[in-house]
Write a protein that binds this DNA or RNA. Sequence first.
DNA 1: CGACTGATTGATGCCTATCAAGAAACGTGG
DNA 2: CCACGTTTCTTGATAGGCATCAATCAGTCG
Lengths: 238, 238
Amino acid sequence: MSIRARPKRADARPRPIACRDCDLNELCRLAVLIAHREGRERPAAGSFRMIDSGTALFRSGDAATSLFAVRQGTIKTVHLSEDGHERITGFHVPGEVIGLEAFAFATYRCEAIAVEHSVCCELPLPRQPERLHVQGLLPAMLDLLGAAVAPKVPLTRGSARERVTRFLQDHGERLRRRGLNGQRLRMSMSRSDIANLLDTRVETVSRILQQLHRERAIHVHGSTIELIDLARAEPAGL
Amino acid sequence: MSIRARPKRADARPRPIACRDCDLNELCRLAVLIAHREGRERPAAGSFRMIDSGTALFRSGDAATSLFAVRQGTIKTVHLSEDGHERITGFHVPGEVIGLEAFAFATYRCEAIAVEHSVCCELPLPRQPERLHVQGLLPAMLDLLGAAVAPKVPLTRGSARERVTRFLQDHGERLRRRGLNGQRLRMSMSRSDIANLLDTRVETVSRILQQLHRERAIHVHGSTIELIDLARAEPAGL
DNA sequence: CGACTGATTGATGCCTATCAAGAAACGTGG
DNA sequence: CCACGTTTCTTGATAGGCATCAATCAGTCG
């Protein structure tokens, strides 16, 4: 059987999102204005970083001086445990912010690695937190941080099937929130990366995707997954 | 066999910790000073809340206007999913702060329920975030939030045995950090609460605790668990 | 003391990890 | 453009871990 008439990988190209849909938008906008007004040496924001697939935006232990917003592509954050194991803690799509731990620590606490060719916006943080207030960035900053600490159910709960469906739903939802296509997902990360995130195995992820495909809940097309009707996959998960 | 010569539950009494060991200390201290200086109507901090076992400090949907620091006892945070399931996201010991989502949302996003008779300190947040700066609370606030967003491996990864051992280690570690006894743990929460947190079943938690007990890695004494040598339980977990 | 709740222990079956192999996609070089 | 090696994904067979059902035991409270 060949349900996988896989199209060429190159057909799918990540697109940048509009600044209006970015979590950093408010902060970024203000920071640019201020930098301009004060005639600063380096722009406080707006500097882009291109990251090739597989390379790091920052690594655990790097000096944490900036926040980053994904503008294009996909960034995975990886936690390195003491025993050397790499645990993926999330995939970040355009509009999402990473590196928030910079507020409390001098160094980043995880690796940020591009899953495909990506572009990020860098927002350098002032060394003195007081400057945040001077610059009027405070409310936006607290929104960003407060939203990040809101308790949410980890993707590593429930059966493997529940994890996969929740992951697909969550991923689509987050893309949709940024004005991107949340139905037809370009899965730029590998199956083993997904398995790592969900704390399961490649084989299991593959099997469940095919299973959902057969049930017409999704449509797997190689690295592209179309969400048809995930709701019908739910009942079995209960 | 009876390895459980369970002592009376009442023997173990939760003790309050010193303010010096509390995560809210810096904020709280400043807030009290300021309230006093300005001769405020209600104290901006220092008000205690007694919570009986099983009752809520706040509920999902309540107006989120304050942070809370656990001063005595144990508070569990529970996330209510759409399908009505209750997922415990953490147990909070004296010195830890809950309700941080108040920074970004008008209402709390989880339930905070006392697992035993507990006491919390309430720190009302100013309605205007700008006041945080005026009051000099900003650096402490950013520390608190930044530390909370640092990526960490969830307790729901790995085998059931790994989860239980990591939970015990983590719990002991957090108590120790507050100057409390991190070796002899009073487990005030039920086994089923632990199972819920670790996304497993009561029977499994019980079996693994007994297993670790037989291996002399811990010493289970009813609701009291003594950590002997968890390191010897690790190798099997790899 | 007796009902009730929480914890422990046992027996059984399902889910998923593991091992193994085949199929498809990708990159490279001819 | 095709051959070839490498990587990624898929599919199958098997074993083991954990959920489930069920029963016993201990502790609590009326």
